[in-house]
Design a protein around this nucleic acid. Sequence first.
RNA 1: GGAGAGGUGGUAGAGUGGUCGAUUACGGCAGUCUUGAAAACUGUUGAGCUGCGAGGCUCCGGGGGUUCGAAUCCCUCCCUCUCCGCCA
Length: 423
Amino acid sequence: MLTLKSLREDPEKVIAKLAVKNFDARAIVEKVLALDENRRNLQTESDAILAQQKQKATLIGGLMKAGKKEEAEQAKQEVAALKARSSELLAQADENNKELESQLVLLPNLPCDMVAPGKGAEDNEVVKLGGPEVKLPETALPHWELAKKYDIIDFDLGVKLTGAGFPVYKGKGAKLQRALINFFLDINTAAGYKEVEPPVMVNSASGFGTGQLPDKEAQMYYVGLDDFYLVPTAEVPVTNIFRDVILAGDQVPQKMTAYTPCFRREAGSYGKDVRGLNRLHQFDKVEIVRVEKPENSYAALDEMVAHVESIVNALGLKYRILRLCGGDMSFTSAITYDFELWSAAQGRWLEISSVSNFETYQANRLHLRYRDDEGKTQLCHTLNGSSLALPRVVAALLEDNQTEDGIIIPEVLRPYTGFDKID
RNA sequence: GGAGAGGUGGUAGAGUGGUCGAUUACGGCAGUCUUGAAAACUGUUGAGCUGCGAGGCUCCGGGGGUUCGAAUCCCUCCCUCUCCGCCA
């Protein structure tokens, strides 16, 4: 969430910046500022009364010891009056501050200066086009047909076991999943990211820390009996490693990578956009997460984009990189680059990675700070990116690499798969 | 899941109703000494909110309660450890 300080210092900038995300923030900003002012007034007043109460309590202790019972009784009466007033003020403050927080979390992160305004996906800027052109045989099939033809992914069986969006990978299909996960993890660790294997269920504090709660609650699977959420991305458990942490200056940056299955309810989605592997309720993803000092976070972002691009290049697939416009960016992001692979058989681009800088937005929720050169605590910047999400990589790989006699496995994956063709 | 013991600052570990944001040790930082380092000695060393400042307030796992006063007593939830049960 945004810091109160940034709102107090320049509310008009906040409103103008959020307009880039097509978010009309004026009403909320004004409400927050009023609540903040009220918060400080209530605190000033209650602090003064609490100070008096404490003084008197100490006094009473002395009187009791000295055996001056009557004076002590008198003082107790006085405290009772103070206490009535202070508890009233504290109750008011409590209510005020809850309201303040509930308003504050409604404000999305500010887009950074590089982000252009825009309504939706059609306004995103293509910053790079790469990879080989795709030439498909006459008989080219979409991946869901290929999956059936070679018996490598069974969507119907998943429906039987669980429901739509929970495919079963079989044979070379299953092996390919494992190969991709290992390949991604290896290339990430080689680039200096530390591998972690986090839980795939998190508590609500973690859900709040990265911004899934309260606004995206309906996107997550919820285990009610234990009050846990299935992770929608490894970003949640990995970033929350740093919740309530103050890092020493030399402990920043932190670079982590993790594989997890990801669980998303995707309520209300249907149609050909969700056909096959295009959108699933459970899918595999390898994530990279970084914690940076503010002055380094944009260099880190560029590095992450270049890193993801190197992975995509290694797979030899046609891709493009988009810089998302304000209207298409996520709630918590300050800037996002999306990677898409071209699916010739479907005639559409498939998103396989999203790399974002959150600046202090998550860190403020997480209470993630570092100690600067002067020994002061400062909020860190957090970043993350997919490197990569598997299903659409598999979709593009199956479709773009199909030949008359099978699907060709990219060179870099062969040490992991142990086969060079699916046939 | 059952029984018991616990959760205190970066760490270890005191503190069972009053001047305790908390003894002490270790660690960290600064200084003295030293050619330099170590050792020794001295000082310093939690976080947040608030205030121009002096200062004030809050926080001893979370929440609630008792009391003039709570780290300390009560209730409740969470977590850790030991034993038993179960089990990959």
